[in-house]
Design a protein around this nucleic acid. Structure first.
Length: 594
DNA sequence: CCTAAAAGCGCG
DNA sequence: AAAGCGCGCTTTTAGG
C-alpha cells in the first residue's frame, strides 16, 4: 500500500524557505484511492510512526515529492520511514528512459518535479525576509512581492504516482524497474539520514594535522608559515625572485627559464621529469621536490584547512549533503565540503567517540564483478571466486598460456576494457584479455558501438544514458574537411567510451544502492539485547560505506555488511556465480581502515 | 567589473 | 609510464 504525502490544499503556497503548515495523506492501493487525512506538520512524524506500527511497516510505502524536503523535518521529530517512493527521483529515471525507443516505455509526467527551485527550503529564514521588507517599505504603496514557493498537493502527487506506477508496470522489465525505483527512493532516505547524523569529525585532531604541516593558523588573507617558507625556497632555487608560485603559468615560465623542459606544472609531469633527469643535476630534483611539497600544502590549506573546518564541522560532526543520482550514471554526487574527496591525509580526523566505533567497509573490485554478472561471463565470474579478481585472471593466464600472467597487467587491461583505453600499455594488453573473456569484453564493446553511433544504453535495472547533444549530431554530419572528419571521429569515440563505461558504472551504482538499502533494513530490524540497534550508516563513497554506532554492535554490523553485499547481487541478478567480497574493518579511526 | 573557463588536485 | 570513465572544489586567467 502506498500513502501519498503532499501539501494540504490550503497550505501549499508558502514563503520561500518555509514549509507547509499542514499535509494531506492519501492512501492508494490496488483497488484505488482510499481515505484522505489532514495532518499538521508538527504531527507528521507521529502519524508515520502510528501508521507503520499499525500496518506492519513493511507493507507501507510513503510516496512524496522530494525526500530532501521531508526527511530533515521527520528526523527532527525522531522518525525515519521504512520505505518510500520518491516521485522526483523516479520521475528523473522514467523521463530519461522514455527518450530511448528500445525501452518501449511510455511516460509523461503529470507534474514537473525536476526543475529546481531557485531557493531550496531552509536557505532563507522567511521571518527575517519579511521583517526586513516591512521596515524598509513600510510606507510604500508598492509592497514588494514576498518570494513564494508552491509545494505539490497530495492530490497532484497521487496522479503522478499512478502514472509512474503504470509506466513501470507496462514496461518490458517491470521487475527490474520496480527494484530500481525502490532502491533509488531508499537512497533518498539514506542520504537524508547521513546528512542528519553527520560523520564524526574530531576538530582537535584535524587542527593538529594542519599545524604540524602548515604551522599555526595564519591571519585573514595570509598564507601559512610553511607555505611562505617553501615559496621562498622555490623562488631561490629557480633563480626567479618574483615568480608567483600559485600561478601555474608563471611557475611554468620560471621553470623553463631555469632550463627545465616541462610543458606544464602537473604533478605527474614533474615527477617523470625528475625521473628522467637523475643524479647529475641534483639541484633540479630539489626544485621538483619543493614544488610538489608546496602543492600538497597548498591543497591541504585551501581545500581542507581551517576555513573548511569552520564552515563544515559543527560540534565534531561533518555534515555534507548528498545528491542521490546526481551523476548521470546514477552514482551519488555530494555538495558541501567535498565529501567525496576527503584526502587520505586528513582521514585520521574521523575519530569515534568514547564507547563508539566505526565500521568501514570497502567492496572489492565492484565494477569488474558487475561486468562479469551482467555480461554473464562464467570465466570472469570464476576468476574472482574466493580470491582477488586480478590475481585470478593472472593465474588463469598462466595456466592457459596467455601473455597476461601478472596481476598488475590484468588490472590495467581490465580497467582499460571498461574505460575504453586504446593506446599505451592498457591498449596493448587488451587483445589478450579479450581472448580470455570474450563474453565480458564483447559486452563492453557492444555498449561502445552503440554510443559511437549516437545511441543510448541502459544499466541492468534500467537507468538510461542521455542522448548526445544536438552539437554532437551536427559534428557527425559535418565531414567536409579532414579536420572536421577527425573531430567527428574523435567525438564519436568519446561518446562510445562514455556509454561503454555507463553500463558498468551505472549498474555498480545500482548494486551499491541495494547494498546500502539491505544494510539499512537489517540495522533497523535486528534486535540486540532486547533493543533495536543504534548503529547508522553515516558515509558512502561509490563502493565504500561507514557505519557509526556503539562498540558492542560492531560484530553484528560487520556480519550485516558482508551478507548484504552478496544479497544485493542476488536481488539484482538472481542467483549468479559472481561473488562480491567486502573488506570490513571495525576501528576507532578512519585512517586505520585501509 | 563580473562571470565562465581552465588548470590542477582530491576521490572512486 | 602516465591513458581510458565519473565527479567537486579552489584558484587563476581570459573574455565580454
Amino acid at each position: 500500500m502506498y500513502i501519498v504525502l503532499g501539501a494540504a490544499e490550503d497550505s501549499a503556497q508558502v514563503a520561500t524557505g518555509a514549509l507547509p503548515a499542514a499535509w494531506e495523506a492519501v492512501t492508494f492501493t490496488d483497488s484505488g484511492f482510499g481515505t484522505h487525512r489532514r495532518i499538521p506538520t508538527e504531527r507528521l512524524g507521529a502519524f508515520i510512526t502510528e501508521v507503520e506500527a499499525r500496518n506492519h511497516s513493511k507493507t507501507i510505502r510513503w510516496a512524496w515529492a522530494d525526500a530532501r524536503v521531508l526527511m530533515p523535518l521527520l528526523l527532527d521529530q525522531g522518525v525515519s520511514p521504512f520505505r518510500a517512493h520518491d516521485l522526483r527521483l523516479v520521475q528523473r529515471i522514467l523521463v530519461t528512459a522514455e527518450t530511448r525507443a528500445q525501452n518501449n516505455l511510455s511516460f509523461t509526467p503529470t507534474i514537473d518535479l525536476l526543475t529546481e527551485d531557485d531557493a531550496p527550503a531552509g536557505t532563507l529564514p522567511p521571518a527575517q525576509v519579511a521583517a526586513g521588507q516591512d521596515s524598509l517599505f513600510e510606507d510604500s504603496l508598492f509592497q514588494p512581492a514576498r518570494p513564494q514557493r508552491t509545494f505539490p498537493t497530495a492530490v497532484q502527487l497521487t496522479e503522478e504516482l499512478k502514472t509512474q506506477l503504470a509506466a513501470i508496470e507496462a514496461s518490458p522489465q517491470p521487475k527490474r524497474l520496480r527494484l530500481l525505483a525502490a532502491a533509488e527512493s531508499t537512497g533518498g532516505l539514506i542520504a537524508g539520514e547521513m546528512k542528519f547524523y553527520g560523520i564524526p569529525w574530531n576538530r582537535a585532531i584535524h587542527e593538529r594535522i594542519l599545524t604540524e604541516a602548515l604551522g599555526p593558523r595564519p591571519g585573514l588573507y595570509e598564507k601559512p608559515y610553511e607555505m611562505v617558507k617553501l615559496a621562498g625556497e622555490i623562488r631561490q632555487a629557480l633563480g626567479s625572485p618574483k615568480v608567483n608560485v600559485d600561478s601555474p603559468a608563471d611557475l611554468l615560465k620560471a621553470m623553463q627559464s631555469a632550463g627545465m623542459r616541462v610543458e606544464s606544472t602537473r604533478k605527474w609531469e614533474l615527477v617523470s621529469w625528475a625521473d628522467e633527469n637523475p643524479r647529475l643535476k641534483s639541484q633540479r630534483h630539489a626544485v621538483v621536490d619543493l614544488i610538489l611539497r608546496y602543492k600538497k600544502l597548498s591543497r591541504l590549506f585551501s581545500a581542507n584547512g581551517w576555513n573548511w573546518l569552520d564552515e563544515w564541522v559543527k560540534d565534531n560532526r561533518f555534515y555534507p549533503a548528498y545528491e542521490v543520482g546526481g551523476v548521470v550514471t546514477g552514482r551519488w554526487g555530494a555538495h558541501g565540503g567535498g565529501a567525496m574527496q576527503i584526502p587520505k591525509d586528513v582521514r585520521s580526523a574521523v575519530q569515534a567517540e568514547e564507547g563508539m566505533i566505526l565500521t568501514v567497509a570497502d567492496a572489492s573490485q565492484v565494477e569488474p564483478r558487475i561486468l562479469a554478472a551482467m555480461s554473464a561471463d562464467p570465466k570472469l565470474a570464476i576468476a574472482g571466486r574466493d580470491r582477488d579478481l586480478y590475481l585470478g585472471i593472472a593465474e588463469l593466464g598462466e595456466r592457459t598460456g596467455s601473455a597476461l600472467t601478472e596481476r598488475a597487467h590484468a588490472k590495467i587491461a581490465l580497467l582499460g576494457a571498461m574505460y575504453g583505453a586504446t593506446t599505451g600499455e592498457s591498449g596493448r594488453l587488451m587483445p589478450h584479455l579479450k581472448k580470455m573473456f570474450p563474453q565480458a569484453i564483447g559486452f563492453t564493446e557492444q555498449a561502445a558501438r552503440i554510443g559511437e553511433r549516437g545511441g543510448q544504453v541502459t544499466t541492468y535495472l534500467g537507468r538510461t544514458s542521455p542522448a548526445p547533444s544536438a552539437d554532437w549530431f551536427e559534428r557527425q554530419r559535418n565531414r567536409s574537411t579532414a579536420e572536421a572528419e577527425r573531430a567527428a571521429v574523435s567525438a564519436s569515440r568519446a561518446w562510445g567510451r562514455f556509454t561503454r563505461n555507463f553500463v558498468v558504472q551505472g549498474t555498480a551504482a545500482e548494486w551499491a544502492l541495494c547494498w546500502m538499502s539491505l544494510i539499512r533494513q537489517k540495522l533497523r530490524t535486528t534486535v540486540m539485547f532486547g533493543k533495536p540497534m543504534r548503529s547508522h550508516l553515516v558515509y558512502f563513497l561509490h563502493d565504500e560505506i561507514m557505519i557509526y554506532g556503539p562498540e558492542r554492535e560492531a560484530q553484528t554490523c560487520t556480519k550485516i555488511v558482508r551478507e548484504s553485499a552478496q544479497q544485493a547481487a542476488e536481488l539484482i541478478f538472481g542467483p549468479v556465480p559472481v561473488q562480491f567480497p567486502v573488506t570490513v574493518v571495525s576501528t576507532d579511526n578512519y585512517a586505520k581502515a585501509k
